[in-house]
Design a protein around this nucleic acid. Sequence first.
DNA 1: CTGAAAGCGCTAACAT
DNA 2: ATGTTAGCGCTTTCAG
Lengths: 350, 350
Amino acid sequence: MKKKINIKTLAAELNLSVATISKAFKDSHEISKATKERVLAMASTLNYTPNPYASSLRKRKSNTIAVILPEVADNFFSLAINGIQAVAEKKGYHVLIYLSHEKFDIEKTIVDDCNSGRVDGVLISITKETKTAEHIQKLQDENIPVVFFDREFEGFKTARVVTNDYECGYLAAKHLIEKGCKKPAFFSISSSLPICIKRADGFKAGLIESGLYSHKKDPIVYFTDFNQEETFNQIKKLVTGKDRPDGVVASVEKLAVILYLVCHEKNIKIPEEIKVIAFSTVDTAPIFNPSLSTITQSAFEIGKAASEILFKGIEKKNYDITNEYVVIPSTFFERKSSQQTSASKEKKIK
Amino acid sequence: MKKKINIKTLAAELNLSVATISKAFKDSHEISKATKERVLAMASTLNYTPNPYASSLRKRKSNTIAVILPEVADNFFSLAINGIQAVAEKKGYHVLIYLSHEKFDIEKTIVDDCNSGRVDGVLISITKETKTAEHIQKLQDENIPVVFFDREFEGFKTARVVTNDYECGYLAAKHLIEKGCKKPAFFSISSSLPICIKRADGFKAGLIESGLYSHKKDPIVYFTDFNQEETFNQIKKLVTGKDRPDGVVASVEKLAVILYLVCHEKNIKIPEEIKVIAFSTVDTAPIFNPSLSTITQSAFEIGKAASEILFKGIEKKNYDITNEYVVIPSTFFERKSSQQTSASKEKKIK
DNA sequence: CTGAAAGCGCTAACAT
DNA sequence: ATGTTAGCGCTTTCAG
């Protein structure tokens, strides 16, 4: 940041006022074509680039947005970032990426910082720990538009872009049952995240409808604080136990992968002994062993839709986006991992 | 960005000068503990957050860095972002993410913008199209430190963090040969990217050493402009042709995945008929059908190392980072896709 | 069509 | 320990 050449030196060089330079850069109609060209030419030879922060300070506009994510290791968020970036780029906006690492404290710090004028809007997918939206409320109080995407906070009025979680959970349950499962389970990563609750609720509804829901045994299994090894052992125990499920719906990709690993190790056959469906955006699902049935969210589209709404809020100052609610349906890809097998067929007949 | 309350109003509220407030916020020793507390308390009740751009303008320091990537859909870059973010967060820096979409023009525009004082440093992985580093030179001319990571530009003096591409290419070739391959091929995405050239060169060296290199037939196959369907057909043609390879090293994950897809469709057995090894960071490789042998880059570590060097350059103004050259070795995970089979053993004997 | 000047919110000398 | 003040580089009335 040791730039010496600024609008003033440029002006001096051309014997023009700074105002003229500034206007020329905005391609203002007040400036003659000739001077505009002179300005641009000189700017180019002097390697002049306007200081964005001076501009932001003066205009009270940062031309940047913040994206706050729990993590980025997941393929979903990678794709979502692409979608967000695509529209930001078109609008000439800059994108700040923040990672909350599933910690509420970090999320709060980040959100509070966003209240400084650093950004014109924020896209957020909340952490598992987030139990209040006060920090986000403050943002709205300052007229900074906020859009939830994927992981929303329920009961808080703001724009949100999500997928049809409940329906997908329901569909997954029905599919498993149709394929012969008698004791399907749902692997959840959180008991508070709406995204998980909805998926689980839909799943449960599917069981109930088929008369397979028992109050005695909750079909929802929680893996709340995620640790690869621990989760592996937890799943192993469950899957080799006496009351093991014959079908699993994984609320996230990771859990399905670990389940596969366990089954490979313990020689449990998928789909013969256990069928699996995962909520996942992984593009390698078709080459898994066996190929994995997925409920695939349109991650790119979700990111794109979320930022489009955000920009509506940013650009139209008096436009209230807080009622926007977009649902982008996921797609079910049926593959081998949830296929009906002769084993399950027999059971059915018997 | 409609904040009304600023340092001045805060000062007025407390009957203090703006200087005192400013210093209190920096936790300056010039300020008494009592006033510091008063300031912080009032700031909190008034919901005051210092305007970062005013500060940046004055200090000529943005406290933000830029990360320029060709794309983020790849798992490698997701992990790298995590590594970068981890150290930026610790340093109190903000991270701007830019996507060049493999287009040089976009990359240039982004890099030029970085020359405006918007960022204090940049991390970049260049596009396939990048054939000059002039735009990056300009950055260095303005004393903005630049670190290449993963995809570097050769023959340009700046810091870089890469992996041991040549050795890995060599190792992959030797491994394939050891397992019985007679006609291994290398799938490359670029004939200009150092990362690909080095991998391919190492691969070629391995063939030459084993007397399997023929000048008549280049074992390097290029898939330069990436398009899923086209690549699929190109691979299908190659792999079902008469001169088909009996082993493949994929320079990137995607190509291996498509190769798998082709083999599944055409019922070509991996590893019996064709063995495969991929440069990849995908964590699902163990559950592929068959499990995929990978040369896995430490993506997180590469991102982390790159940003650590960058911060050295940012923080120590007179420290020249352009000679920094860090090589973070990749790890080879041998799995089924490159296993020796009775078929290949027989061939060997015969 | 061009210019003068005020000021965005903050920091850093330099007083006091 | 606290205050005064001059900008950082730009945009924007308002004059000419």
